[in-house]
Amino acid sequence: MPEISQPAPDFTLPATGGGDITLSALKGKAVVLFFYPRDDTPGCTKEAIGFSADLAAFEAAGARVFGISRDTMAKHDKFTAKHDLTVPLLSDENGSVTESYGVWVEKNMYGKKSMGIERATYLIAADGTIARIWRKVKVPGHVDEVLEAVRAL
């Protein structure tokens, strides 16, 4: 699991809107990666809408923002269209990125154990190192907190 001040694990993933995003190609800009369990569930929808609503503020602060889950591109496209999302969503169908960032974890819901994505956000500085990590994110107020951290870089 990567830690603060370590280089962020590089990846290339398909993105909504077409094309691929390669993390190392974004050096020189801050990058926010928010990992979320699944498209079109209540918390994930609120989080994606929140990042979309403040996307211009993140860009003005010099940061790119991406949401990552293991959903397919078809699900991402449907989710984006349904909620008019402007934040690009990346598809990690094979799970290599969620595993490299340590967010693929065992969950326990109502006594039933299963594997899933822990809601987490990584702030990557312009030099490609991890500046902040939020684990077990609670959605209310999270987008504002991440934006403040971006502005403080």
Rank of each mutant, 00 (worst) to 15 (best):
S24D: 10
L26Q: 15
L26E: 13
K27M: 04
G28L: 11
K29T: 03
A30M: 09
V31Q: 03
V31L: 01
V31Y: 04
L33P: 13
L33Q: 06
F35R: 04
F35T: 11
Y36H: 13
P37I: 04
P37R: 03
P37H: 02
P37V: 04
D39G: 13
D40F: 11
G43W: 03
C44L: 07
C44P: 09
C44M: 06
T45E: 10
K46F: 06
E47D: 14
G50I: 06
S52R: 12
S52L: 08
D54A: 14
A56M: 05
A57K: 15
F58S: 06
E59C: 00
E59L: 02
A60D: 14
A61N: 05
A61S: 08
A63W: 07
F66N: 05
I68Q: 01
D71Q: 09
D71C: 09
M73I: 14
A74H: 11
H76N: 14
K78A: 15
F79T: 12
T80S: 13
A81C: 02
A81H: 06
K82R: 14
K82Q: 15
D84L: 07
D84S: 15
T86G: 11
T86R: 10
L89C: 07
L89I: 04
L89G: 08
L89H: 08
L90K: 06
L90N: 09
S91M: 09
D92Q: 07
N94E: 14
G95F: 11
S96W: 00
T98F: 00
T98V: 15
S100D: 13
Y101G: 02
Y101S: 02
G102Y: 05
G102D: 06
W104C: 03
W104N: 03
E106K: 13
N108D: 15
Y110I: 01
K112T: 10
S114G: 08
M115C: 02
M115D: 10
G116A: 08
G116M: 07
G116I: 10
E118R: 09
E118H: 02
R119S: 07
R119M: 03
A120F: 01
T121Y: 10
A126S: 14
W134V: 01
R135V: 01
R135Q: 13
K138P: 05
K138W: 01
